[in-house]
C-alpha cells in the first residue's frame, strides 16, 4: 500500500500499516518457506527414520522474546498513529453539525447551509460535531483514515484536515438496517478560495438546492429524495419500512393514537403531522419509533411542497 497524505490522520495510520504489513509478510513468507523445505526434505521417502527430538529450551526463549519485542514496536506505532484521532479540535476549526439517521447524512454549516454531502476547505481543520437520531452509525472516510461510531444520545467529535482538493467516498460502516449500504455520501474538498466563494454563495443557501422552475409537486419530489424519505416510502404502492405515499391523501387511515385505534382522514394536516410528529399517530401495521421528526430539517415552504407532492400521488 502506498502512503497517502490526504489528511492529517493518514500519515500516522499509514506508517503503522507499513510497519505491521512488513512484519506480517516477513513472517508469513519466512515461515511458509521453512515449512515447505521441511516437508520436502523430511518426507518419508527422503528421510525414512525420524529423529526423536523433544524440544529445545533455548529456542523456546528466543522465539518468545523476539516476537515480544516486535509486537511492542507494532503496538507503539499503532498507539502514536491513533493519538491524533483522540485529541480535541483546535480552536480555529471550522465546525459542522453532522446528523446521522437511518439512512441519510446531513451536514449543517454555521451560516445555515444544509447539505447531504460534506463540502470542506482544504488545509483547514474541520470539526464534525456528530449526532445520531436513531441507531448507531459510523462515519467512515477511507481516504482520510477517519472512522468514528456515532451513538445515539451522545455527541461525538471528529476533526481532521483534508490536504488535497477532490471528491472522496463517505460511508456508514456500522450496520444500521435495511438501507445500510446506501447510507453513502461524499466529501468534496475545495481549495480555500473556492470554498470561500461556495460558502458565501447565497443561491445555494436555501436549505436544499431545488430548481425553482418546475411544478410544486415535482419540487416536493426532489426534496423527498434528498431527505432520504424514499428509503422507507415508495411512490408506487409497495410497502418498504413505512407505507407507500400512493393513494394516502384523502383516504381513511387507521392509526393508533395513545394506544387506541382510530380512523382519520388523511388531509393536509394529517400529512404535516405525520412528518413533524410521526410518533403521535402510528399507522396500523407499522412500528413506532422508526420514522423520526423532520421538524428541524424542513422549512414551512419545503413542507408545503412535500404535501403537494403526496397530494399529487392520488
Amino acid at each position: 500500500m502506498i502512503t497517502s497524505n490526504l489528511s492529517n490522520l493518514a500519515r500516522g495510520v499509514d506508517t503503522a500499516f507499513i510497519v505491521i504489513l512488513s512484519v506480517i509478510f516477513f513472517f508469513l513468507i519466512g515461515l511458509t518457506v521453512v515449512l515447505i523445505i521441511f516437508i520436502l526434505r523430511y518426507r518419508e521417502s527422503k528421510n525414512p527414520v525420524a529423529s526423536q527430538i523433544h524440544g529445545n529450551n533455548k529456542l523456546e526463549i528466543i522465539w518468545t522474546v523476539i516476537p515480544l519485542l516486535i509486537v511492542m514496536a507494532m503496538f507503539y506505532f499503532g498507539w502514536t498513529g491513533w493519538k491524533p484521532m483522540d485529541s480535541a479540535p483546535p480552536d480555529d476549526a471550522f465546525e459542522i453539525e453532522t446528523t446521522a439517521r437511518m439512512w441519510k447524512w446531513s451536514f449543517k454549516y454555521p451560516n445555515g447551509k444544509r447539505l447531504d454531502t460534506l463540502v470542506i476547505p482544504a488545509g483547514k481543520p474541520v470539526s464534525l460535531n456528530m449526532n445520531s437520531l436513531d441507531v448507531i452509525h459510523s462515519i467512515y472516510i477511507p481516504a482520510f483514515r477517519l472512522k468514528k461510531d456515532i451513538n445515539p444520545g451522545s455527541e461525538r467529535n471528529a476533526w481532521f484536515i483534508a490536504n488535497t482538493p477532490g471528491i472522496y467516498d463517505l460511508f456508514c460502516t456500522e450496520y444500521c438496517g435495511l438501507e445500510h449500504s446506501s447510507m453513502i455520501s461524499s466529501v468534496k474538498v475545495l481549495s480555500a478560495d473556492e470554498f470561500e466563494s461556495w460558502y458565501a454563495d447565497s443561491v445555494s443557501e436555501t436549505h436544499i438546492a431545488v430548481k425553482t422552475e418546475v411544478s410544486a409537486s415535482s419540487r416536493g419530489k426532489q426534496i423527498v429524495q434528498q431527505l432520504g424519505c424514499n428509503a422507507c416510502h415508495s411512490a408506487d404502492g409497495t410497502k418498504i419500512v413505512g407505507p407507500s405515499y400512493l393513494g394516502v391523501f384523502g383516504h381513511e387511515v387507521t392509526v393508533i393514537r395513545d394506544g387506541k385505534t382510530v380512523t382519520v382522514t388523511a388531509d393536509e394536516d394529517y400529512i404535516r403531522r405525520s412528518i413533524l410528529d410521526p410518533n403521535f399517530e402510528i399507522v396500523e401495521g407499522y412500528n413506532k419509533g422508526l420514522m423520526l421528526s423532520y421538524e428541524d430539517l424542513l422549512s414551512d415552504e419545503e413542507l408545503d411542497l412535500i404535501v403537494e407532492y403526496i397530494k399529487s400521488l392520488n
Partner: peptide, 23 residues
C-alpha cells in the same frame, strides 16, 4: 492460521484498526 493470526496484528494496533474496523 498464520494469515489469520498475522492479519490480527493489523486489528490489534489502534491506528490501523480504525481504518479497517467494520470492513
Amino acid at each position: 492460521f498464520m494469515i489469520g493470526g498475522l492479519s490480527g496484528l493489523v486489528l490489534g494496533s489502534l491506528a490501523t484498526n480504525v481504518h479497517v474496523h467494520d470492513t
